[in-house]
Design a protein around this nucleic acid. Structure first.
Lengths: 353, 353
DNA sequence: GATGAGACTGCCAACGTTTGCAGCAAGAGT
DNA sequence: ACTCTTGCTGCAAACGTTGGCAGTCTCATC
């Protein structure tokens, strides 16, 4: 019962590759040799335990652990066609909105034994598809966060491999989006209750899907509350852009602003404060995302809370569902938002009432 | 001259795997069939162009492009023993110190045709090694940022695969560290020139290597400038911890604080401002990292600039050097720091002079 | 015209894993 | 004693790529 079909063919001295990392790795064949069984049996013992004799199995398990065996991803991948890896494309890791999403994607993926490959497009729209395509070779599925690529391209991408979109709905693909209606409605009502009758929307990138959503939701809320809505922008979701927005805002006659995201709002606050204005008194500012940064400024930023962690884990769940059953109809998950009131909003100055 | 050793064995209907992604992928064999050459020739044409006839090569290249051929990572990986992927372990993606590092690691790695797998330990020391070991199966080398694991364990890890440490020196492994001496010296001199004679260090995590470095460098600078040094902490590098530090600080008799990092400093500022103190007048605060956040507060945070982008790209360079030649002696790269003065530091109140 | 060199290309084995199939032994049923 | 089943295990092929080796063809040289 000697296993000689799977004997080792190299010793350390003749092994043709550097003896780093993977080359040192224990293989099925070595475990098999040590147990005097075939590689098939070892493979089954470790992946499909009911299929082998209980005694053999425990012996194999012990030896495998002892030798530090870990399956080669490449070998497994080659035969299964799967990589057990998902890709995640974000526009900017440095935008504090994304780290919580990334974290929850990773946590959920790790639970399900998937690795996560992350790509950062640096807000560069053209790189988005290229990075996604590059990743597609080495992942089973993709999560695209806040993509700005044209819808037709995204649909085509989603036909080539399972994709879940975060913060965007795309024809024929799963997505996780936030419903900003409630949050923005609360925000407008909040401002109205403070005496504001005019609101400026500091717009995000023109091609951004979520910017459209937010603008529309805000317009609806303003109409419903009989509030005049103005708009400035577009601004990139960056602090610097917010500072630029601040100056435009200050020269207007509006004392309340809702920004496309927290970064813009924080830039606005920072710049206004620097110019001597009292945010929360002379002017009210509201952000969207409720990132951890909302609490470091003074006054703290009133912001619309977005459930970032749920966003990430829902995306992973949707993606894995799709991997399990590719014929499943694409689903859209919608998450609620709500207003978190802090110090950056206050009673409208009398001159603006 | 028919190529029948490499003929296709499945058609779409009998293919046993879901027809998603990789399963659809064009293989060498298909390109070979379309060109009437062997897979070896295609392989060589695409990876080692001088080895095949110019005419054949261009034909192969054309067909490959046309068919959308992309090599299978798994197949290549299996034979080469390499994964063309590097792992990056960070304690907390949400800490604004890390995103710039992550970005530069990714950018440099991408230049060199490497993918990057990121793991976040959530500041959990015990997960650090576990994640690193998990990653080690699927990467050629690792970059560990600000690890807090015991040195002996790190040395052992570095014996198993190429590792480069960021923000920490480890026996027998490459590392990229920052030399905080200059920056802290400038910081102390700056405070002295403003009339401060006592400084409190808001300490980072006790096991953190860079916390040791910073504390030592600060102690040296204080001695040299005849300044009294006190210490509070340890604090986790998080805004919340900084707020806690603020209250401790306020009840002491020191009007100048240097924090382990920007997050702690920002938490301190936020809390002090909230309690009605004027940061930059009644009390001076200095951070370390000079993260983008330093500019969103009012006053803006005086901070010690750390060249995050260089940190990342140097780490990748060191790692790839080591992959190319495993026998290379491990190198340590040291990067300079400098003080960036903003509004959070000011003349010492007379009572403290 | 035989020989040799050189340029190119094909064959095959190998990487580590999974899995259909077949073989084998032991026990059950007739 | 025979078949039949059941439980377990081994064999071998397959996944896509690479690279050593050997074969073929062309052409120059003697």
């Amino acid at each position: 019962m000697r296993n000689n079909g799977n004997r080792l063919r190299y010793d350390a001295r003749t092994y043709p590759y550097p003896t780093w990392g993977a080359a040192l790795a224990v293989t099925l064949a070595e475990v098999a040799a040590a147990c005097n069984v075939s590689t098939s049996t070892v493979s089954r013992a470790l992946t499909d335990p009911e299929k082998v004799n209980a005694e053999t199995r425990t012996r194999i398990e012990r030896v495998a652990r002892q030798l530090g065996y870990a399956p080669s991803r490449a070998g497994r991948s080659l035969v299964s066609g799967r990589t057990d890896t998902v890709g995640l494309v974000v526009p900017d890791i440095a935008n504090p909105f994304f780290p919580p999403i990334i974290k929850s994607v990773q946590a959920r993926a790790r639970d399900k034994r998937y690795a996560v490959l992350i790509a950062d497009t640096d807000e560069h729209v053209a790189d988005e598809l290229e990075l996604a395509r590059g990743l597609s070779r080495q992942v089973d599925g993709l999560i695209l966060a806040s993509p700005r690529t044209a819808p037709a391209e995204l649909t085509r991408l989603a036909q080539q491999l399972p994709v879940v979109f975060v913060n965007r709905e795309v024809e024929g693909a799963g997505s996780v989006v936030i419903d900003e209606n409630e949050g923005l409605q609360e925000a407008v009502e909040h401002l109205v209750s403070l005496g504001h009758r005019r609101i400026t929307y500091l717009s995000g990138p023109r091609r951004s899907w979520s910017n459209q959503q937010r603008r529309d939701a805000l317009a609806a809320a303003c109409t419903a509350n009989d509030v005049e809505l103005r708009e400035l922008g577009p601004f990139e979701p960056q602090i610097q852009a917010g500072m630029r927005a601040a100056d435009l805002l200050q020269s207007s006659e509006v004392a309340a602003a809702i920004a496309y995201d927290d970064l813009i709002a924080l830039g606005v606050m920072s710049r206004l404060t620097e110019r001597g204005m009292q945010v929360g008194h002379e002017i009210s500012v509201i952000g969207i995302d409720d990132s951890p940064l909302s609490t470091v400024t003074h006054p703290m930023l009133t912001s619309i809370h977005v459930p970032a962690a749920e966003l990430g884990s829902a995306a992973v769940d949707l993606l894995l569902d799709q991997l399990r059953d590719p014929d499943l109809p694409p689903q859209t998950v919608k998450l609620e938002t709500r207003l978190v009131i802090r110090g950056s909003t206050g009673v409208a100055p009398t001159s603006f009432k």
